[in-house]
Computed example of a mutant assay.
Amino acid sequence: MTSAEAGGFAAAKEGLKAIGAQTQSINQQVSAGKLALDPQVAEDAAKRVEEERDALTNLLRKAQSLSTVKGLGDYPDGQQLAKRFEDKATDSQSGAVQLIRELQDELQKQADAFRAAARDYRATDERNADDLRRGM
């Protein structure tokens, strides 16, 4: 069992991988010239993805607060429970804080991919316009 599974975040880790695969697919299609989005559509998509990224900031704060759980007492059981909360929040490989940050990074990459598709659309449009002006 991986530390992500041990932390109870296996589904979140899989979701992050799926979003990463989507981003990679968008980038590959743009690079291959197979995806060119209308600039306004691409910008709207990028903004929507960035809104989702920004919404994660509140969740990030909540996850960070798990690392400072108070009031569980000075008994060993209370200290162990507080430590488990801290580990689930801050584990560098699979903690909630790390996963949220990775998701925010991936969403930004996806927004950037949408904008790259818009740039490709504009470049293609400009090339076509230039060709028409030259009589090709």
Rank of each mutant, 00 (worst) to 15 (best):
residue 100 I to A: 04
residue 128 N to L: 12
residue 124 T to W: 04
residue 106 E to L: 05
residue 53 R to P: 00
residue 11 A to D: 15
residue 131 D to Y: 12
residue 42 A to D: 08
residue 75 Y to H: 06
residue 130 D to W: 05
residue 71 G to N: 08
residue 24 Q to R: 14
residue 51 E to Q: 03
residue 117 A to K: 02
residue 17 K to Y: 02
residue 60 L to P: 01
residue 60 L to H: 07
residue 35 L to W: 10
residue 119 R to T: 15
residue 11 A to S: 13
residue 113 A to T: 01
residue 71 G to A: 09
residue 23 T to M: 06
residue 133 R to Y: 05
residue 97 V to Q: 02
residue 91 D to C: 07
residue 31 S to L: 12
residue 92 S to L: 13
residue 17 K to G: 07
residue 63 A to P: 00
residue 116 A to V: 04
residue 29 Q to H: 12
residue 56 L to F: 06
residue 104 Q to R: 10
residue 60 L to W: 05
residue 87 D to M: 12
residue 129 A to G: 03
residue 130 D to M: 05
residue 56 L to V: 02
residue 98 Q to H: 11
residue 41 V to I: 13
residue 3 S to Q: 15
residue 48 R to E: 08
residue 3 S to F: 10
residue 18 A to E: 05
residue 101 R to P: 01
residue 96 A to E: 12
residue 91 D to N: 15
residue 15 G to S: 10
residue 93 Q to I: 14
residue 116 A to M: 07
residue 93 Q to G: 14
residue 1 M to T: 04
residue 36 A to V: 01
residue 61 R to K: 14
residue 44 D to H: 07
residue 80 Q to M: 07
residue 30 V to N: 05
residue 82 A to E: 14
residue 94 S to I: 10
residue 1 M to Y: 04
residue 86 E to W: 11
residue 122 R to P: 00
residue 3 S to L: 15
residue 32 A to M: 13
residue 51 E to V: 03
residue 51 E to F: 06
residue 70 K to P: 00
residue 11 A to P: 02
residue 60 L to V: 09
residue 135 G to C: 05
residue 59 L to A: 12
residue 44 D to R: 10
residue 14 E to P: 01
residue 52 E to G: 03
residue 37 L to Q: 03
residue 44 D to K: 10
residue 61 R to M: 11
residue 57 T to W: 04
residue 92 S to A: 15
residue 106 E to W: 01
residue 110 Q to P: 03
residue 114 F to T: 05
residue 136 M to H: 05
residue 124 T to D: 08
residue 90 T to H: 00
residue 72 L to I: 01
residue 75 Y to E: 11
residue 10 A to Q: 13
residue 71 G to E: 06
residue 11 A to W: 11
residue 18 A to I: 08
residue 70 K to E: 13
residue 59 L to M: 08
residue 57 T to Q: 13
residue 55 A to W: 04
residue 90 T to E: 06
residue 17 K to F: 04
residue 78 G to C: 09
residue 91 D to M: 06
residue 52 E to S: 09
residue 24 Q to A: 15
residue 9 F to Y: 08
residue 125 D to P: 02
residue 126 E to Y: 02
residue 95 G to W: 03
residue 126 E to H: 03
